[in-house]
Simulated scan of single mutants.
Amino acid sequence: MTITMDHRWLQAATGHATLDSGQRVAAATVRRWACDAEVVPVVLGSRSEPLDVGRATRTVPDALRRALNVRDGGCAHPGCDRRPRRCHAHHLHHWSNGGDTCLANLVLLCRYHHRLIHHGQWQVAIVDGRPWFTPPPWIDPDQRPRPGGRPHVPL
């Protein structure tokens, strides 16, 4: 079942939700259903495109992929110049371990850097909306985080 509702209405228990059939449902009913069911939130962008699909799927929807392309500009690993179409969307907190499919939990990586993150003891975190990479101690004994990505800047 798909229920669409403004998050502010859900929090305030006012207004209504719309079922995929088009039927309207009171906010109180939606809140009760949410207590009894597994809820998968989907956060929509300004044109109703999905930007966060929670745990619904491991696969990154097109709109979320476009957001990653803009934010990271290609492989986000410092110094890499691979274009977005040559990159994988990597879950920072792995989906199989409970990680969400959302912008704050994804980073674009080329094949080489994707394998390096999985097997080379590099760590990645999103800080203030930007990926930061921490190298293993044999590369940098102080393990200083390095900014990654090269975001698209409109002209």
Results as ranks from 00 to 15, higher is better:
residue 1 M to A: 15
residue 5 M to R: 04
residue 10 L to G: 11
residue 18 T to Y: 11
residue 21 S to M: 04
residue 21 S to C: 09
residue 23 Q to V: 13
residue 24 R to H: 14
residue 25 V to W: 01
residue 28 A to N: 09
residue 29 T to L: 13
residue 32 R to Q: 13
residue 32 R to D: 13
residue 33 W to T: 03
residue 33 W to E: 07
residue 35 C to M: 10
residue 35 C to K: 13
residue 36 D to M: 05
residue 39 V to F: 06
residue 40 V to Q: 04
residue 41 P to R: 07
residue 42 V to I: 15
residue 45 G to P: 01
residue 48 S to K: 02
residue 50 P to W: 08
residue 51 L to K: 03
residue 52 D to T: 02
residue 52 D to H: 14
residue 52 D to Q: 06
residue 61 P to E: 10
residue 61 P to L: 14
residue 64 L to Q: 03
residue 69 N to A: 15
residue 69 N to L: 00
residue 69 N to R: 07
residue 70 V to E: 08
residue 71 R to P: 07
residue 91 H to A: 04
residue 93 H to N: 12
residue 98 G to K: 04
residue 98 G to W: 09
residue 99 G to S: 05
residue 101 T to V: 04
residue 103 L to Q: 12
residue 105 N to M: 09
residue 106 L to G: 12
residue 107 V to Q: 02
residue 108 L to G: 07
residue 112 Y to F: 05
residue 115 R to S: 15
residue 115 R to E: 15
residue 115 R to C: 12
residue 119 H to E: 11
residue 120 G to N: 08
residue 120 G to C: 03
residue 126 I to C: 04
residue 126 I to W: 03
residue 127 V to R: 14
residue 131 P to I: 09
residue 138 W to Y: 13
residue 142 D to K: 13
residue 147 P to I: 01
residue 150 R to E: 05
residue 153 V to N: 05
residue 155 L to A: 11
